[in-house]
Design a protein around this nucleic acid. Structure first.
Lengths: 154, 154
DNA sequence: TATTGTTATACTCTATAACTATA
DNA sequence: TATAGTTATAGAGTATAACAATA
């Protein structure tokens, strides 16, 4: 660690004028999302699961038998990115590639038994972590937010 | 282009169960933010300005004379990332590094005259692009969203 | 001809550590 | 001792293009 953790110098950060950035949803979305990702990492990095891998785990858990390409499309990624993700989850013995009976080009993805218990535990942890942030929200704002964000993403 | 743009095969995407992902602010924030970034790029990539460079431009415009480190802290980045960003904006003749009179280790950052007019034009474009998305929102939701996202990011 | 999984590749973003010159 | 700018570097994340096997 090169940097000092308790600097004696003022950063002047509290006096900075953010101009139009304070009125832009794109900027505010980015800042909020970065906070959520770093909180996710703090809560889950010891398990070796990134937010992206967590998404794959949940989609396969809820939709057993999906192909890699279908999972990629559900998450909005390119199928080439799925190879390393499934490789890693398979090395962790959480997921299994079974040859598809209908189409010999593709695999059907399933959680292993330990993948099932692992993902249950992870989901609990992620929900706990999110609930810790709900104190920043008023009654009903979480549901409202989920609805608005879904509309903005479509 | 290897891929066909009008596939005849169903993706089954509309039938996928997203499970807990549909209830997680972190996931929804990421999806919404990715949409905003791709819309930003579609609207502004011809000008050679990414969302990150736009942030630097706005902070320097509103706070002339700041050091690179102060800008980095305002935007939540590491100061090492600021070098390439300021280099690029300087090559585009939008920003200027002036030696600080108080501290010979640091530079004071300013917009050039063309940087001023350029950033005005960019800000208009970014606002126009955002306003195109407000049709997805109901009355008052934008202001409420800015407030909630600010609370979540702190 | 088109699609699946794969590989190679590249580009961006981000963060860390170490260096120099200054403070 | 600490800080500002810099460099080198490395790790994610993401995307494109091409290939073999299969449809």
């Amino acid at each position: 660690m090169e940097e000092s953790l308790n600097s004696k110098y003022s950063t002047d950060e509290e006096q900075i004028d953010f101009g139009v950035l304070d009125q832009l949803l794109g900027y505010k979305l980015r800042r909020a999302q970065l906070k959520f990702f770093s909180r996710f990492s703090a809560a889950c990095s010891d398990l070796g699961i990134s937010p992206g891998l967590f998404g794959v785990l949940v989609i396969v858990k809820e939709n057993p038998g999906l192909t890699q390409t279908a999972v990629a499309q559900a998450l909005g990624n390119d199928r080439s990115a799925m190879v390393a993700a499934v490789d890693k989850l398979e090395q962790m013995s959480l997921i299994e590639r079974r040859p598809s009976k209908k189409d010999r080009r593709s695999y059907a993805l399933f959680l292993t038994p330990s993948g099932e218990t692992f993902s249950e535990r992870m989901i609990e942890r992620v929900i706990d972590q999110e609930e810790g942030q709900y104190q920043r929200l008023k009654d009903g704002e979480k549901e409202w937010l989920l609805d608005v964000l879904t509309r903005l993403a479509n």
